[in-house]
């Protein structure tokens, strides 16, 4: 029984970070129809910025994570303006394929740029953000795990509130549902695209910053989270932000199950096996609708 409770808690915590990554990926797919394969690199930058904030500037953990999100938001907006604005002008056909190739390029460039600037050394927190443990149902779980999980949940809840309750958030949803209609009511598509991309990057950065307590920043630290967030999207359907949250938790469960029952070597086999099954049986994903770019509902 204890084992089950422990597994559930670990799954939810693990899945929560996947959700945070997947939500940003989903948002950009839903609003801009971009298959972002550089999403992991913004996670990686988030980890570096959080290290910088925490160790170099000696900020408290919350501020370090916030700093990482804000800095990567700015970088994300810059990347959007430098790369996708020109692509929108020039590419009409094969847009999705072009975004895939382009973001793959961005990913490689960013990894190597970081390697050139800071080298291959690992930048990690020697003692995490928060010391100590918390007792939950008699099990000791590190404060880092719990508080960082709560921060990522707060980021997701904040995003949902922002999308549903604010004027700008509504405008983002409007663009995802009907870009022409959005223009006609006076929404500036260019601004929404830049802002949305920045927001998505900031979410990835917050995930990277949160997980810095256990995964040190390296040039390729974003790869695993990138794959995980794509698992989630394929599992629940592309571009559905709400479903991505659930999807993250599901993937967390699957992995914990695999680790507990089969051994940690089977973790990715489990996820990938299910992804393959999904693609064969229900390519639109668990919550996906056929032919609908259903986006941010």
């Amino acid at each position: 029984m204890d084992n089950i409770i422990y597994a559930v808690i670990i799954s939810v915590i693990r899945g929560g970070f996947y959700s945070l990554m997947a939500v940003g990926l989903s948002l950009v797919f839903g609003v801009m129809n971009i298959a972002n394969f550089a999403h992991g690199e913004f996670y990686m930058l988030g980890a570096y910025f959080a290290y910088c904030g925490s160790v170099v500037f000696r900020l408290n953990p919350f501020l370090s994570i916030l700093f990482a999100g804000a800095a990567v938001f700015v970088i994300g907006v810059g990347v959007e303006k430098a790369v996708f604005v020109p692509l929108r002008v020039r590419s009409k056909k094969n847009w999705l394929m072009n975004t895939f190739l382009l973001t793959l390029g961005i990913s490689i460039i960013m990894q190597n740029l970081v390697r050139v600037v800071v080298g291959n050394r690992n930048y990690g927190l020697r003692r995490g953000y928060f010391q100590g443990n918390m007792q939950i149902f008699g099990m000791g779980i590190s404060n880092d795990r719990i508080i960082c999980f709560l921060i990522s949940m707060a980021a997701i809840v904040g995003l949902m509130l922002f999308l549903n309750r604010t004027r700008l958030g509504r405008a983002i949803r409007a663009v995802s549902q009907d870009a022409t209609g959005a223009q006609l009511v006076g929404i500036n598509l260019g601004f929404i695209y830049s802002f949305t991309f920045g927001l998505s990057c900031a979410l990835a950065a917050i995930a990277g910053a949160c997980l810095l307590f256990k995964d040190p920043a390296t040039p390729i630290v974003g790869l695993a989270p990138l794959y995980k967030s794509w698992f989630v999207l394929i599992l629940v359907g592309m571009g559905n932000v709400g479903a991505s949250i659930i999807g993250g938790i599901i993937v967390g469960f699957l992995e914990t199950l695999a680790v507990d029952w089969l051994g940690s070597g089977w973790m990715d086999v489990m996820s990938l096996g299910i992804i393959m099954l999904m693609l064969i049986i229900k390519p639109n994903g668990l919550f996906g609708k056929k032919g609908v770019k259903s986006a941010v509902e």
Binding site: A174, Q177, D178, G181, L184, S294
Partner: peptide
């Protein structure tokens, strides 16, 4: 002509 409504709102 397409109305361009926000159908999920």
């Amino acid at each position: 002509e397409e109305r361009n409504l926000f159908i999920s709102m």
